[in-house]
Design a protein around this nucleic acid. Sequence first.
DNA 1: CGCCAGGCCGTGT
DNA 2: ACACGGCATGGC
Length: 237
Amino acid sequence: MKGAHPRSPTARLRWMHDRLAETYGPQHWWPAKTPFEVILGAYLTQNTAWKAVERSLDNLRSAGALTVAGLRRLPVDELQRLIRPSGFYTRKAPALKAFVAMLDQEFAGSLRKMAAAPTSGLRRRLLVLPGVGPETADAILLYALGHPVPVADEYLRRIFERHKLANAPPVRGSISYEALTDLTRRALGTTPAARQASIFNEFHALTVAVGKAQCGRTPRCEGCPLEADLLHSTNDS
DNA sequence: CGCCAGGCCGTGT
DNA sequence: ACACGGCATGGC
């Protein structure tokens, strides 16, 4: 019986993952061909619609700048012009140049070498880069470098609030990024290491899929795969 | 037209 | 620790 919905936050999140998986199927995600394209997209999509990111990526492709070497030789003002469609270009262009500078200085310009470093150190290093916060750092770690870390975003936060997935701890205000990823780790982080990254990958992709379907935004969440069962279940402890 | 998108940062409590 | 405004463009 899949209708009944579990009480503990971790069980609820697993249930949600399963419902989304059976609704949307395998996502195998991040819409990019190479790790460096993932990184470009992670920066460019900050508070920006993906459609606009695609325009910028097209411009970069035409300029031969979808690679580390290509971006390295691009002057920052030229980079600004190319990524203009995805907004915030006065911040994002220098931020991308700073990433390449870090990669050059600390990893000989090699994403392969960077990926070989331990996760926690990499995350700290990413977080002190300009224009890199928790979500961008985790997206780079997971999707570009293959490290097993959960990624949360605005979609997941809205889904949580809409469906009260985390109502066991006192609901004070909105849920922090760290609370979202901690719960995801507790719920889905017990997988064998070899498959862990793909589990987090899939779950995040599914939250984006249902998020783009407007879950958490329309009043009744019409057609939301999480809706029916959650209506008559929620908070009684 | 106005609203807002797969955040992040500096500043002020 | 948290709230808030600024950052910029383009799709809908």
